[in-house]
Design a binder for these strands. Structure first.
Lengths: 355, 355
DNA sequence: GAAGCTTCCGTGAACGTTTACGGTACTTAG
DNA sequence: CTAAGTACCGTAAACGTTCACGGAAGCTTC
């Protein structure tokens, strides 16, 4: 027999370094002179354990730094203490803010958050992501789905655990329920502000119609105008980028179609517009009033400081976690969307009397 | 014989509700007519299973949608398939970009990412976060520690699994090793650019010295100047906010100490500065050249478009995951930091001949 | 046609918990 | 003094895997 085995020396010696091993419930039990059952009871603060014993066990636990093995617990109880967060990969402002806030409130409720992000061909990536989240044993999933295609993929996907989608203005289905901020209201606030300032010719430089945010903001703009008896003015749809907005602004200047007032679908859109106008001697807000949406960091120091709409991501996160946990635990909770607020700065001004 | 108990039929009939229950390795085995051991072998594509059997098992797995229970696997192998990401709660540009990128490459390597963020009194929150990450069974932890206090907390904390810290210019300790981008180089690039443009009076409007980024960027500025035989000019330390920068800019104007050229510690800092100068008739870049740092979204559409330094978060994430995984698996990998790049736009210009 | 290899597969134990059940020792009532 | 509680606590089984062993065929080889 060819002598050369050796290579795989692994027989049965995991505890090479006994120190490094994580203490188990048995270690605690032994030290405390009780059975592991008793330790388990104090861990889950169940009844049927005397005060003195409880005390002693607790002390030992602290001393040796025992921590309950979550995998083992999950295995036997098959209920979980974590939620999954599914996000698209874009580092755009909204999604990221939501993500962080979400983790925060989940943790405060005793849930760990495992996140996963998906990319462009959503059909497969979303289902795969949902599956692997399921694998890790999450009890529920929140998906941040700003773009329509992604939401569609979520609707078509199947998943054992409850799925909640944060998507502005999208509708719930039997499988996945939806929650969001009331961005349409945000758009209404912005547009109304412009109307209140005396403007009549109010354009919308929109975001991408592939995004819920883009659709909903446009809808809000349009509806407000109609409600006020005004005809919706110019509307051009873009892609959120300052670059596109800049070029659009340039075109407007060239064609002499610069409107009196503009509701820009995002702060970055506003940024591009402002540059295009300013470079051509058209002053904001003197010649054209602009209000943005997002209140990104720094928007208060744009030139001019931007009047814009702010969403409350913390409130959003709080509510939506509440809603998900409710679904997981069989409760039913209120689901009215969060209202954004208008923050008034210097980029929109009273309409001049001319016209 | 007893006409059918019904109620709890569970002796060996798991499929009470065949639908909702998650299939196990045993279900697969039964359907395939093999033992669970064999199924396990095909799952881990171990040898010792015939092609035909493998085929059949694989098919069944697909048919009934079996997915391996991670908790059970983790329990028995005690090696993990997830990493923890610890971040500070700030939605500042750098940290968030890193976070997303990190998850992305981790997933591509087959690891799930559970994230947790900590807040201000770091001493306790960091240790708690590390612990609860450990609880969830991560194999290693990457902490994004932009601020010095947080890093200190990490240094003082104890943790069983490898901890890697992403902190610009911080040093490694026995317990936690550090990795980062070479931000000092970034600062040097920016400063050198200004020198090359012919400027001699180059100030630094710095970030917060509570942040590594602030410290390192200042150091780079100072070193470059000295290397060029120039005396470092004005340096004032702030807090990254456009607001503070704006006020600082105003003060400079009032005291008539506006320098010829400025290396701003961040794009947002630059933003505040620019507004202060512009509002007072001091033109950028005609009267003062400014270069920023970060290349935040939209900085190409500031007024003027900002010359700045861009970090490659994807590369950072790729490398640091590589490094962590290396540590977890006992490999040793290269750890040279990533170089940022200078992106030249319009906010810095050739020095005028005067002076 | 028995010895020795391969190749494939089944079995049992273990991982660290939770949970239901059972048991002891004390207390109290009759 | 016995019966029935009560207050504690121990035990066994189960959760869904992985892994080391061992064993049964089938194929060579003499």
């Amino acid at each position: 027999m060819a002598g050369m085995a050796v290579r795989r020396e692994g027989n049965d010696r995991p505890p090479a370094t006994p120190s490094r091993r994580k203490p188990t419930i048995n270690d605690v039990a032994q030290l405390a002179g009780v059975s592991f059952g008793t330790v388990s009871r104090v861990l889950n603060d169940a009844p049927d354990v005397s005060a003195s014993t409880r005390e002693r066990v607790l002390q030992i636990i602290k001393d040796i730094g025992y921590r309950r093995n979550r995998a083992a617990t999950a295995l036997v109880t098959s209920r979980s203490t974590s939620i999954g967060i599914l996000s698209d990969g874009s580092p755009r402002f909204g999604p990221v803010g939501t993500l962080l806030a979400l983790e925060n409130v989940a943790r405060k409720k005793g849930y760990a958050a495992t996140v996963i992000s998906v990319e462009k061909p959503y059909e497969e990536s979303v289902q795969a992501a949902l599956d692997s989240l399921d694998d890790t044993g999450v009890g529920g999933i929140i998906v941040i789905a700003p773009v329509v295609d992604m939401a569609a993929a979520v609707w078509n996907a199947t998943c054992r655990v409850p799925v909640e989608m944060i998507a502005a203005g999208a509708s719930s289905t039997p499988n996945v329920f939806t929650y969001s901020e009331n961005q349409e209201l945000g758009a209404r606030l912005a547009t109304q502000h412009l109307i209140d300032l005396g403007h009549r010719d109010i354009a919308h430089i929109a975001g991408s119609m592939d995004w819920f945010d883009g659709r909903v903001r446009k809808r809000g703009w349009e509806a407000t105008l109609r409600d006020a008896g005004l005809e919706p003015g110019l509307c051009v749809e873009g892609d959120w980028s300052p670059k596109w907005a800049y070029e659009t602004g340039l075109r407007l200047v060239r064609e002499e179609k610069v409107p009196q007032a503009i509701f820009a679908a995002s702060d970055h859109t506003a940024l591009g517009l402002i540059r295009a106008f300013t470079e051509n001697g058209i002053r904001v807000p003197d010649d054209v009033s602009i209000v943005g949406f997002d209140d990104v960091e720094g928007s208060d120091y744009f030139l001019p400081p931007l009047t814009t709409v702010r969403q409350d991501f913390n409130a959003l996160a709080l509510m939506s976690t509440e809603v998900l946990l409710g679904a997981m635990e069989g409760r039913d909770v209120d689901r009215t969307p969060i209202p954004p607020t208008l923050v008034v700065r210097d980029s929109a001004r009273q309409a001049s009397s001319r016209k």
